[in-house]
Computed example of a mutant assay.
Amino acid sequence: MKLFSDTIHNLEQGLNYSSTKNKVIAQNLSNVDTPNYKAKDVSFKKQLEHAQNSFQAKRTNENHIPFGHSDQVIQIREKNGVTYNHNGNSVDIDKEMTELAENQIYYQALVERINGKFNSIKSVLNGGN
């Protein structure tokens, strides 16, 4: 029996993804003037597949397709085939700043949600007070 649902684990995975994305964006921004630096991005597709694989379904027939479980790692990949600067650098500072702002909002939303879960647990442990 699990003490907590998968919600806290899924929120933790989201925080890990967001933290990694923030580090990659910061690395891109710090290398905006580095010749031949190729901007990097964090793969969301693998995270989405991981979230979809974490669903549990009750199989009422052995012929039904099972839902799988797999722990996939967050992937960081170079953005190939694009060059924004004359020195071979592929960092678009406006795009990176936009992604940074979006990621900060996403991270804060996850933090607020996980705090709500812990506050609910705390309330239950205190007898609803």
Results as ranks from 00 to 15, higher is better:
21 K>F: 05
22 N>M: 12
22 N>C: 02
23 K>C: 04
23 K>H: 03
23 K>F: 08
24 V>D: 07
24 V>I: 11
25 I>Y: 07
25 I>Q: 03
26 A>I: 08
26 A>N: 13
27 Q>Y: 05
28 N>D: 02
29 L>D: 04
30 S>Q: 11
30 S>N: 15
31 N>H: 03
33 D>P: 05
33 D>S: 08
33 D>V: 00
33 D>G: 00
33 D>F: 08
35 P>G: 02
35 P>T: 01
37 Y>L: 03
38 K>N: 04
38 K>Q: 13
38 K>T: 05
39 A>I: 00
40 K>T: 07
41 D>L: 09
42 V>Y: 02
42 V>A: 03
42 V>D: 03
43 S>Y: 00
43 S>M: 07
44 F>R: 02
45 K>L: 00
45 K>Q: 14
46 K>D: 13
46 K>C: 05
46 K>G: 03
46 K>T: 13
46 K>S: 11
46 K>F: 05
47 Q>D: 00
47 Q>T: 01
48 L>F: 14
49 E>C: 06
49 E>M: 08
49 E>P: 01
51 A>P: 01
51 A>R: 09
51 A>C: 05
53 N>V: 00
53 N>L: 09
53 N>C: 08
54 S>A: 09
55 F>A: 14
55 F>N: 15
56 Q>K: 14
57 A>Q: 12
57 A>N: 12
57 A>S: 14
58 K>T: 14
60 T>M: 09
60 T>W: 06
61 N>E: 12
61 N>P: 02
61 N>A: 14
62 E>P: 11
63 N>S: 15
63 N>M: 15
64 H>T: 10
64 H>F: 05
65 I>V: 15
69 H>T: 14
69 H>F: 13
70 S>I: 04
70 S>W: 04
71 D>I: 10
71 D>V: 06
72 Q>P: 08
72 Q>R: 10
72 Q>S: 14
73 V>R: 11
73 V>N: 11
73 V>E: 14
73 V>Q: 13
74 I>L: 05
74 I>P: 08
75 Q>D: 13
75 Q>R: 11
77 R>H: 12
77 R>I: 12
82 V>W: 01
83 T>C: 09
83 T>Y: 06
83 T>M: 11
84 Y>T: 07
85 N>S: 13
85 N>C: 00
88 G>I: 06
88 G>T: 06
89 N>K: 06
89 N>Y: 06
89 N>F: 07
91 V>F: 03
92 D>A: 03
96 E>D: 00
96 E>C: 00
97 M>G: 06
98 T>S: 10
98 T>C: 01
99 E>N: 10
99 E>R: 04
100 L>R: 01
100 L>T: 04
101 A>R: 04
101 A>P: 01
101 A>E: 05
102 E>C: 03
103 N>M: 00
103 N>E: 09
103 N>G: 01
103 N>P: 02
105 I>E: 02
105 I>D: 04
106 Y>S: 03
107 Y>T: 07
108 Q>L: 13
108 Q>D: 13
108 Q>M: 13
108 Q>T: 15
110 L>N: 11
110 L>I: 09
110 L>W: 07
111 V>E: 11
111 V>G: 02
112 E>L: 09
112 E>D: 14
112 E>K: 15
112 E>G: 10
112 E>A: 09
113 R>Q: 12
114 I>Y: 00
115 N>I: 05
115 N>P: 03
117 K>V: 15
119 N>A: 12
119 N>Q: 15
120 S>I: 10
120 S>H: 10
120 S>D: 14
122 K>N: 15
123 S>V: 04
